[in-house]
Amino acid sequence: MDDNRAKAYAARFDKVLDYIEANLGETLTVERLSQVANFSRFHFHRQFADYIGVGVARYIVLLRFRRASHQLVFNRGARVIDIALEAGFENPESFSRAFRHTFGRSPSDFRRNPDWEDWHTRYRFRIPERKQNVQVEIVDFETTLIAVMAHRGPVEKVNDSVAQFIEWRKASGLSPKDSVRTFGIAHDNPDTTEPAQFRFDVCGEVAAAVPPNPQGVTTGTIPGGRCARVRHLGSHQRIAECIYPLYRDWLPESGEELRDFPLYFHYVNLLPDTPEGDLVTDIYLPLR
């Protein structure tokens, strides 16, 4: 397959993957998905599995379980029956059986004690980098006082730090997610950093210094200054598709120089309140 044909083939799969992500709450038939990709429905199963590494029905279930997992852990008030129905199951019993078959644990067990590192092993698909035409803006970011939950260790365990930060938010009331901004500061690239050395800060805007607390949240600052900003739409799992073009393509051509502060994210909306396909994340690259 020549390069142009390969790119066209990849673009058709990008289209169907975007469609699945945006319509997880709908009925997703093979006939409809093959039409979106402009493939023969008779061969779509095989083409999808060969390209992604998992069958289309299994892929859809796993994406629905991904949202269900976040709801179980981060929305403790949500009933299992409601999570099951939203995931496309007729009753909590069938949802629990399928969840246990996938993750080796019941939804209730996962809610009580999630093992995110093991959970991530189910989501290692064979998806090539999806090409993004990033739109870069140069903006001035104002110095912002933040509460910081420092994560140190494998990227797969970041959700454990997120849970600690949410616990602090609820207990302190000092950084309510509905009225202030939530950030993530990426000190390292998880693709090139040893898991034990990976650093990521989970942050929320605050009005004053953070008092001592059992969760270990501290006070920090995002310094003001010029930044390149790119808006990423969709799952946080695909955010690198906007980051790499920013570094690889835009930065060398722009003539800009980087400031001595890590790349960071402003999460305009958040899981599990927002479906993955509707997530909006602004990526900031600090410039001199």
Rank of each mutant, 00 (worst) to 15 (best):
D118N: 12
I52W: 07
N133L: 08
P214E: 09
V180M: 09
S106L: 09
I185V: 10
S175F: 11
N189S: 10
T274D: 09
R64C: 04
T219W: 14
R231M: 03
D50L: 04
M149G: 01
R100Y: 04
V56T: 09
V16D: 04
L85Q: 15
H187R: 02
Q35T: 04
G224N: 06
P176R: 13
T192C: 03
F95H: 13
P275N: 10
L287S: 02
Y9P: 00
V162W: 07
A84P: 14
S96D: 13
V268W: 08
S108C: 07
Y59H: 13
E241S: 11
Q215M: 13
Q47P: 00
D118P: 00
N113H: 12
E93L: 15
F42R: 06
K15E: 12
A208V: 10
D188Y: 02
P128A: 01
A68S: 11
I20M: 01
I146Y: 12
F42C: 00
E129T: 07
G104I: 09
S94C: 08
Y264A: 03
R46I: 00
Y123Q: 07
A240G: 14
G88R: 05
T192E: 15
V136I: 09
P154H: 10
D18I: 02
R126Y: 00
K15H: 07
V61M: 06
K131N: 09
V54G: 01
G77V: 04
D201I: 04
N159A: 08
E194N: 07
R199W: 05
I52N: 01
P262T: 06
S96G: 06
H70C: 04
Y267C: 09
V56L: 03
D140F: 06
H187G: 05
Y264H: 14
R152M: 12
Y264T: 05
P272A: 00
W168A: 05
G220W: 09
E156A: 13
R97S: 09
I127G: 00
R46T: 02
D249G: 06
D249S: 13
N75E: 13
L17P: 02
I239Q: 13
Q135P: 01
F183G: 06
S254E: 14
Y19H: 10
Y19T: 05
S235T: 14
E26H: 12
G277D: 06
G277M: 07
Y123N: 03
E93R: 14
N113E: 15
H236S: 08
H70K: 00
R130D: 11
S175E: 11
L28C: 01
A68C: 07
P195G: 02
L85A: 13
P128Y: 08
A98N: 14
Q164T: 00
T193A: 03
D260T: 06
I283H: 10
R199Y: 02
G220F: 06
A147I: 11
Y267M: 14
F110T: 07
S108M: 13
G204V: 04
E156T: 13
D249T: 11
Q135E: 15
N213L: 02
H236F: 04
I243Q: 15
G55N: 07
L258P: 02
R79K: 15
R100V: 07
D140C: 04
I185A: 03
W168I: 03
D115P: 11
N159E: 14
